[in-house]
Design a protein around this nucleic acid. Structure first.
Lengths: 205, 205, 205, 205
DNA sequence: TATGAATGAGATTTCATTCAT
DNA sequence: CATGAATGAAATCTCATTCAT
């Protein structure tokens, strides 16, 4: 149960553990100062080592974001796929997806911030084609869900799914910019406020 | 009516005109590639001149963003203040503010993108304290409006104004990231979709 | 006794040693070509490294002159204070101060040249207020000494201390411009010629 | 008697007049801020015109110093040659040369300051070989004079002429750095203090 | 594993100079 | 004569990265 069990010392597992630890720090710094604005030295400072030393663990600054983002997206899609596989109705699926998203913000806030701010620029790089792929899957998932909901009578018919998809996508992720895990509201409460607004509107009936 | 009238040549007006032209270009490049990632050389290329030549017109790269953002915010608050001074009800005021915001996105898209992506970092610089001031006014305006709407019975009482304010704020501005003036929908149509969602919800009644 | 003892390797002492070495080189180049005319690249070339590498050791070109000048002035005033504390007569004190000054030229020639040529301009910078302070102390020391010597009957009464102070000050330091440690005369011999001229005059009695 | 007489307008004389006027301004700025540190724009500002406009009058920044220094040196050597041609004794010649030098400082202070600070660096440039020539003539003049004075019994025999020459040379010119035409002392008074010190020494007999 | 020192490419900025008007 | 705009070379400085120890 200790963070570093005896049998890990000097092993591949110990190494992976150290990487993960460094990546958590790096993600926080990248999120706080922006990926391209952050210097490797700043990451190293926050990790209590010198800039050059990071290169023992990582090939490059780029490989750090790469690992941060791909890890995050892998986990996220695992959550999403679990939900999608449950075959619920459109409204209920939407609720689950939104709640899962706010959960992801809760657990991977720095990664989400980086994803939100930098993925557009990174996506131009061959190494990050998976960001484009993920965007496409997002779009298919949400537009498909909205269309299904309209067909099935769950959602209003006068909505433009591509536009609404973008609003939902952005609003969810952008919350990573201000959400604080130790703040006034839990991620579930934020999700509920968000759903209240998106599903029923702010207007009193 | 020609873009450069005779009486402007060599005058302060001509100079201001050239500056504005260069700033439009700069804003587009900054918006597309990110302020800190954009090199002065890239701005110069896009302006058809050499990097050094830009310094005839501007003190620094920083003073370019400064002028872009302050011009934008000045105009935006003129619009907002006009609306706020009309003394309409909460719901109607919200509609007008949202519509004005999408209008601003329509007319100043690059500036909005820069504002959205860079203001957090720039605000740490003394030169950009007006960004912090503007944020505060935003917050007061929106939270105040939501609270008034709840009191007056326009908006639902179970909403948390500070949270909803953030959703509204972010979602509006983040639209600058995907909205295209020459796209399928006009800014008014986007505003209407947005209002439909925010006011009445996506759920069919 | 070797220039780099084993116990220094990788230590703060080793680092200070390297800095001192680089500063000696920098001082020579600054002295030879003028501070503002010298490029960082020229200093780097003379140090056998690339321009950028110097920034591992120093914050800026300015911090290099800063360290050169402040180190020199600190040492110089230690020497002066030792002499002033001995409570000798005016004439003897003058002799000691002049000899100490030529000794300083001998040991810190490049620093003296820089001090002579650049301090006027550098002093406008907040970082170099100590140059102004030092000038003031110089003036007080020399004018005070001359006045005391006149009172005590060591020096001629028809002298104008503020003017003579300037002549002495300038003549001493300006010698750094032509004095060569490996030249025909030692610094003591130069000091003696100087004192012969200043104390007794060039005229035969 | 007006600064610009009618018959000069548009003529070569008028042009020369304007050049001289601009050069006076340039010399002051160069003297105050250092030649290489001064920008052409600063000279232009002080002259009430734009940087580019100066190039109507002068080929380059370099040609400005060139004209300032060569004009000064030409005049100076005319004065010196007049004195040397009078065939006076060594002591009297020394007095006249020193007085003439302080007169030159009085009338051409900025040029002297520039000469003092920049000639070493400029002399490396082919265009300024006359600076080297002038230095040589200086040396010959002063060392010759001192040697003659020793031979003829005017000056002390224990002096080292090359060293004393340098002290005299430097001290005279360096006074340009602090002498103010409108200060407490006239240039003649300063010259007299200087001669009192150099000829008879500061020590009371 | 980590350090300290250096590399080298590239960024922002400055500035003497040119030239059409 | 002077302006306004631009050029282009070079300067200071930053920073990801490498590598011997």
């Amino acid at each position: 149960m200790s963070p570093r069990r005896r049998d890990e010392a000097g092993t591949a597992a110990a190494r992976a553990h150290r990487r993960a630890q460094l990546l958590r720090t790096a993600a926080e710094v990248f999120a706080a100062r922006g990926y391209s604005t952050t210097t490797v030295r700043q990451v190293a400072d926050a990790s209590g080592m010198l800039a050059g030393s990071l290169y023992y663990h990582f090939d490059s600054k780029e490989s750090m974001v790469d690992e941060i983002l791909s890890t995050f997206l892998t986990e996220l899609w695992e959550d999403y796929d679990t939900i999608l596989d449950q075959g619920k109705g459109a409204r209920e699926t939407l609720e689950s997806l939104v709640t899962a998203s706010f959960g992801a913000i809760d657990r991977h806030r720095p990664a989400v911030v980086i994803y939100q701010n930098e993925s557009k620029h990174l996506a131009e790089n061959d190494r990050f084609t998976y960001l484009v792929d993920s965007q496409k899957r997002f779009r298919q998932m949400w537009v498909g869900l909205l269309e299904r909901g309209i067909e099935e009578g769950d959602f209003r018919a006068d909505l433009d799914p591509p536009v609404i998809y973008r609003f939902i996508r952005d609003t969810v992720w952008v919350a990573a910019g201000w959400y604080r895990p130790d703040g006034r509201l839990t991620s579930e409460q934020v999700a509920r406020q968000y759903l209240a607004m998106v599903l029923e509107g702010v207007q009193r009936r």
